[in-house]
Each structure stands twice: as structure tokens, then as C-alpha cells.
């Protein structure tokens, strides 16, 4: 199925969890995840399965003012 990962179109197995998708994309901690604009706590990533067309955001620390 087709998803958006940090603004990039990707295609994944429909059975994959958020955790598996993020690992497959090589995300390195620390990070936090949102699905369709909603925060998904780290503990829920293995049990959350996105639907086709969903948008995943994986955010990490950056400079801020």
C-alpha cells in the first residue's frame, strides 16, 4: 500500500506495523512519531498498523529558538 513518510511517497506491505516501517526506513533514535497528525506514543508503535494513504511523520531534535 502507498503511504507518505516524512513527506516522501513510499510503498509498504499492508501487514507492516508502524514500528516495522520506521525500522525499515532506518530511523535512528531519538525520535517521536505521528500518524495523520496524531501523536503515537513509542509503546503503541508495534501495535499500530497504518492504512493506505496515511501520512507518517518521524521527528528528531533540531536547533530551536
Amino acid at each position: 500500500m502507498n503511504l507518505t513518510y516524512n513527506g516522501e511517497a513510499i510503498c509498504v506491505d499492508s501487514e507492516q506495523s508502524l514500528q516495522q516501517i520506521i525500522v525499515s526506513k532506518g530511523a535512528k533514535p531519538p525520535f517521536a512519531v505521528a500518524l495523520n497528525g496524531q501523536f503515537v506514543p513509542a509503546g503503541q508503535l508495534p501495535d499500530t498498523k497504518p492504512n493506505s494513504g496515511d501520512s507518517i511523520e518521524v521527528l528528531s531534535p533540531i536547533q530551536g529558538g
Binding site: N6, G7, K28, F31, L59, P61, I62, Q63, G65
Partner: peptide, 21 residues
């Protein structure tokens, strides 16, 4: 010190910056 979050594939977001902080 103030910090923020951005997409991991953006420039300089991630572990290196966080380590400096």
C-alpha cells in the same frame, strides 16, 4: 536552552545535534 523537532531526514536533525545539547 531551547530546542525543537523536525523531520529526521531534514538537515542536521537527529542524534548528532542532540548529543551536543
Amino acid at each position: 536552552v531551547t530546542v525543537s523537532l523536525r523531520r529526521q531526514n531534514s538537515v542536521s536533525a537527529g542524534e548528532d545535534f542532540w548529543q551536543l545539547i
